[in-house]
Write a protein that binds this DNA or RNA. Structure first.
Lengths: 163, 163
DNA sequence: GTTGTAATGAGACTCAGTCTCAGTATACGT
DNA sequence: ACGTATACTGAGACTGAGTCTCATTACAAC
C-alpha cells in the first residue's frame, strides 16, 4: 500500500498533526460497526482528507493505483456505513466522495456544469443561522425531518470560463 | 398518445388555463433549436407540469406506458437542451426531471434519504435575497461564475418517519 | 408531389457500481 | 503457540440506468 505511510511514523506524513486525530477518529467509527481500519481504508481516508475537494472513483484510482476499484468501492461504502464518508452527486454522471462533516467542517459546494469539478466553500456562521431557521420553516410544513442540508451553486469554474 | 389531450381542445384538459401558456412556451423553446413539439414530448411535459415534484424515468414510464423508455430518455434530453427541463440528482441512484425554473418558479428540494422521494418547497423572497448575496460572496473568491443554485434539505419524509 | 430534416421504437450497447467467491489476514480465547 | 471465528481482499462476473444505432415514419416547406 504505497500511498500510505505507517501510522506509527507520523513524522514522515505531510501535515501529520492535522490528521493524527482524524485517523483515530475514523478507527473508532469503524470499530463501532465491527470493522477494522486496514491499510486500504487508510489510503482512501488519507486521500479524502488531503484532497480539499470531493473525489470521484477515478480520482481515487489514479492517486492510489494499487487499490483495486472493487476494493475502493467497498471501502467507500463501508466508510459511509461507519459515518466517515459521505457520497455526493455532482453535475456529471460520476459520484463523488468526501469525509463526513462530523470529521471536517460544515461546507457547501460549487459545481462546474462544464467539467464536473466540485469546489468546497465555507459559509459564514451568520448565513448558516439563516439557512438553519429557514430550513426549519420549510420542513415543518411538510412534516419532514431534516438531518442536514446542502447548498450547491451551479455555474462555471475559473478554468472553464477561460475556454 | 393517450395521456395527452389534443392541444386545440384545452377545455377538456385539467387546469387548462394554467398550462396553455406553458405548452406554447415549450414549443417556442424547442423551435429555437429546430425541434418540433410532438405528442410524445407533450406527454412528458404535461406529466412534469402536473406532478408537482421531480419525476424519475420509472414515474414517467408508469404514468405514460405508451411512451417507450428510449423515447422518454431522448425527449428529456432534447427538452433539457431546449432549456425546458432540468435534470436533478436525488439521494438515490435515479435521476429526476422537472420543468426548468424559467417555466415554473424558483424552488428548492427536500430529499428523503430513506425512500428517495423529492418534495418541492418555495423559499421566501427575503431568504432568496440572502442566499443570492451569499452565493456572490462565496463564488467571487473562487473566480466561479454562478448560473443557479440549489438548496437541498436531506432527511426523512413524513411517511418514512411513521415506519 | 418531392425533398430535406426531424422523430420514433426496438433493441444493442456502455460502463459506473455491485456482488460473488475463493483465498488471506487479523483478533481473540485457550 | 495454536485454533477458530470473523473480517478483509482482489479478480472478475454481473446488473441496470442511461445512451446509441439504425431502419422507418412523420412532418414542413416549396
Amino acid at each position: 500500500m504505497s500511498v500510505l505511510r505507517p501510522r506509527t511514523a507520523d513524522a514522515t506524513r505531510p501535515s501529520a498533526n492535522a490528521h493524527l486525530d482524524l485517523h483515530e477518529l475514523v478507527e473508532t467509527h469503524l470499530r463501532r460497526i465491527d470493522q477494522r481500519y486496514t491499510s486500504g481504508r487508510q489510503a482512501v481516508v488519507q486521500l479524502l482528507a488531503t484532497s480539499g475537494r470531493p473525489l470521484s472513483i477515478s480520482d481515487i484510482s489514479s492517486a492510489a493505483p494499487d487499490v483495486p476499484r472493487s476494493s475502493a468501492y467497498r471501502h467507500l461504502s463501508d466508510l459511509q456505513r461507519a459515518g466517515v464518508v459521505r457520497r455526493i452527486a455532482a453535475s456529471d454522471e460520476f459520484a463523488r466522495f468526501e469525509l463526513a462533516e462530523d470529521l471536517t467542517h460544515h461546507h457547501h459546494h460549487l459545481l462546474c456544469s462544464n467539467c464536473g469539478k466540485v469546489i468546497d466553500v465555507t459559509p459564514s456562521p451568520a448565513f448558516e443561522a439563516t439557512v438553519a431557521s429557514m430550513v426549519d420553516d420549510l420542513t415543518l410544513e411538510q412534516g419532514f425531518h431534516a438531518t442536514s442540508h446542502a447548498l450547491d451553486v451551479i455555474g462555471h469554474c475559473a478554468s472553464c470560463q477561460a475556454t
